[in-house]
Nucleic acid binder design. Structure first.
Length: 106
DNA sequence: GAGATGACGGGCT
DNA sequence: AAGCCCGCCATCT
């Protein structure tokens, strides 16, 4: 097997999240054998090119909330994308939130 | 090569 | 129990 760099591993795992489900930065990190690299996972996703086919919107933080504060991809956009997949978006004191107990992928 | 950064998370208060 | 603090890791400057 060809050696994959960190970004590639992250992207591969995110691609594996089925439609209508979500995952977390920490879980993605754990799946690529670097359980403490959750922060780096976020960095990798931030560096995603616009035209990428990686479903970045399915990745949330450990609390099921949207961590993004990006200008090009505001949290409203991410919430809309999740909603479009049938995921119920809860409003937790003016913050978008997803019930991980229901939507978290394995 | 050293110091800074960030779409995180766990532990302690 | 909601937040603050600090350690982690790959990258960036």
């Amino acid at each position: 097997m060809e050696v994959m760099n960190f970004y590639e591993k992250v992207y591969e795992q995110v691609q594996a999240i089925p439609r209508g489900k979500v995952s977390t930065y920490g879980l993605i990190a754990a799946k690529i054998s670097t359980p403490r690299a959750a922060r780096a996972v976020g960095f990798a996703l931030r560096r995603l090119p616009e035209d990428s086919d990686v479903p970045w919107w399915r990745v949330l933080n450990k609390s099921g909330r949207i961590s993004i504060q990006n200008m090009t991809h505001p949290s409203e956009e991410q919430a809309a994308l999740l909603k479009a997949e049938g995921i119920k978006i809860l409003a937790e004191n003016s913050q978008f939130c997803v019930d991980l107990g229901v939507y978290l992928a394995d």
